[in-house]
Simulated assay, not measured.
Amino acid sequence: MTSRVLITAAAADLLQSLQNRHGALMFHQSGGCCDGSSPMCYPNGDFIVGDRDVLLGILDVGDGVPVWISGPQFEAWKHTQLIIDVVPGRGGGFSLESPEGMRFLSRGRVYSEQENTDLAAQPPITGAQYEAGARPEHKGTRIVDEASEEAALACAIPDRAG
């Protein structure tokens, strides 16, 4: 089963440490406003999930960490697997890792045709559906050793034709 979201082992270690300190956590993939296009980490429930927000998955760190994205942003990114990584530096002012000297970073990998077909058969859960009790099916881990070379750039810049 293809996952819409993965987390690197280094990011999962930081997330577990934050979870030990702050309790249940969640991510919301920022759309580029105040903190750029970063995965923002909050205590679970501190960020209000909208009815049209999309649950990319629940990371198997601690008791589980849901990862959300806005509906319109999901439509633009639905062909891309989100990989949450961590790098040295100051995170966004609102994200819990900010004082740690590390920041979560979004990386991406474009799905293959087969993966897109597989994902089309398992539509994502919206905030409204989650509120009503829907939960994603979970098989296997979502923790990877590191982001692959394919996902080395957080935002690849397309070539511009003259």
Rank of each mutant, 00 (worst) to 15 (best):
Q122Y: 03
G92D: 04
D13M: 08
S30M: 01
Q129G: 02
I84A: 05
L25H: 05
D35T: 11
R109F: 01
L119W: 03
N20K: 14
A152E: 12
V5D: 00
P158T: 08
G93D: 12
N44H: 12
A10P: 02
D118E: 15
T126Q: 03
L15Y: 06
Y111L: 12
P158N: 11
R160N: 06
I83F: 03
G23A: 12
F27D: 01
V5A: 09
G31Q: 13
D85E: 11
V144K: 08
P88M: 05
E115H: 00
A76N: 07
H138A: 15
L119K: 02
Y130T: 01
I157H: 09
V65N: 03
A161D: 10
L15S: 10
R107K: 15
D145Y: 04
L18C: 13
D35G: 15
S95L: 03
G32R: 10
K139P: 00
D46L: 06
M1Q: 07
M1H: 09
S98T: 14
V110Q: 07
L15D: 03
A161L: 14
L6E: 13
R103H: 12
R142E: 04
G64S: 10
E137M: 10
A152M: 09
K139N: 10
I157D: 09
L18E: 14
G108F: 07
Q19L: 13
C34H: 13
S17F: 03
R90A: 12
A132P: 01
Q122W: 02
A120Y: 02
P88A: 14
Q73D: 09
Y42N: 06
T2P: 15
S37C: 10
T8V: 13
E100Q: 14
D46Y: 05
Q81C: 09
E97M: 06
D51R: 12
I84T: 03
G93R: 12
L18Y: 03
E149T: 08
S95T: 15
E97Y: 05
T126I: 04
E100D: 13
A120P: 02
G140M: 10
I143H: 05
G50D: 13
C33M: 12
G23T: 10
L119Y: 04
H138V: 15
R103D: 04
L153S: 13
P43E: 13
I69N: 00
S70F: 06
P99H: 06
D145R: 12
L55T: 01
Q129E: 15
K139V: 15
V61Y: 08
K139R: 13
I125R: 00
R90Q: 11
W77K: 06
G133V: 14
A152P: 00
I69D: 00
E100L: 09
G57Q: 05
P43Q: 15
A128V: 05
P158D: 12
L6R: 14
P136D: 10
F27P: 01
D159I: 08
H79S: 15
H79Y: 05
G93T: 11
D46V: 01
G127T: 03
S70C: 07
G89N: 07
E75T: 06
T80H: 11
I83Q: 02
V5G: 01
D13H: 11
W77M: 14
Q73V: 07
D85F: 08
